[in-house]
Design a protein around this nucleic acid. Structure first.
Lengths: 124, 124
DNA sequence: CGTGAGTATTTACGCATGTAAACATCGTTT
DNA sequence: AAACGATGTTTACATGCGTAAATACTCACG
């Protein structure tokens, strides 16, 4: 399974928010924050093309880029990887970890409650 | 903050389970599964030494290695990284993600319930 | 048609990684 | 003391990544 790197994921993020986009638009959105030059974004786009994570469609002299890899797929790969490596593939220990580190916000807790409730409901 | 690589983490894992250990013991435990030669483990140990993630104490002709980096620290770094990159730093969306993917086991759910209950109790 | 601006593609380069071979060191055995 | 075996250290090498300079392509314009 073709893995995309962290810098590449930053570019994907832009495309996940809205597509299609030109290289220029991507640079405009991400360049300032990442301190990237034009060439950097172009390179990343090309690597993403080679990895079949994006598709490019010609539009006059430039290209319109769209994501092929879905955000869900990427998130899934990444989180499953972490979970398997560190928490034996199970979710509860992960949450417990954050709980111990006091990294659960009020909001988190409330949302988790709600989530469990919903699971309960659809269960019956 | 000095990051350790995935292969290096495999070696750390052995040391986290039990320490101190010799290079030979580490190889014995991890070599078969990873298909690693002796040199590979030695190299990884040296990189870990340079990164101050393990400590080596001479014992006759060999060394005894112990972890300096704590498993908790490592887990913390890794999970915070993922959480920040993909879930805006919050735990509930992560769990929701797994829930949507039907990746929550019965056991997970039960444990999460218990966890929330405990938070509730200590709250009061 | 030649040129220049706008784009994209190729090449580069240093550093980390995965993997290991080559080399060095140091007690032990003739 | 010389050679050997065990162990650690150095060096190597391909690949990927982050970053970008160099180069190539493509229209619109003079």
């Amino acid at each position: 399974m073709m893995m995309i790197s962290e810098a590449e994921a930053v570019v994907m993020d832009v495309l996940w928010r809205e597509a299609p986009r030109t290289a220029e638009e991507i640079l405009a959105e991400v360049g300032p924050a990442q301190n990237w030059q034009e060439g950097t974004v172009k390179s990343l786009l090309n690597r993403l093309l080679r990895k079949k994570a994006v598709h490019a469609e010609r539009d006059g002299r430039r290209y319109l880029y769209r994501p092929l890899l879905k955000r869900e797929q990427y998130v899934q790969q990444e989180s499953k990887g972490l979970l398997d490596r560190l928490f034996d593939g199970r979710v509860a220990p992960l949450v417990a970890h954050f709980s111990e580190q006091r990294k659960l916000s009020k909001k988190d807790i409330a949302e988790l409650r709600k989530l469990l409730k919903e699971l309960d409901d659809e269960q019956s």
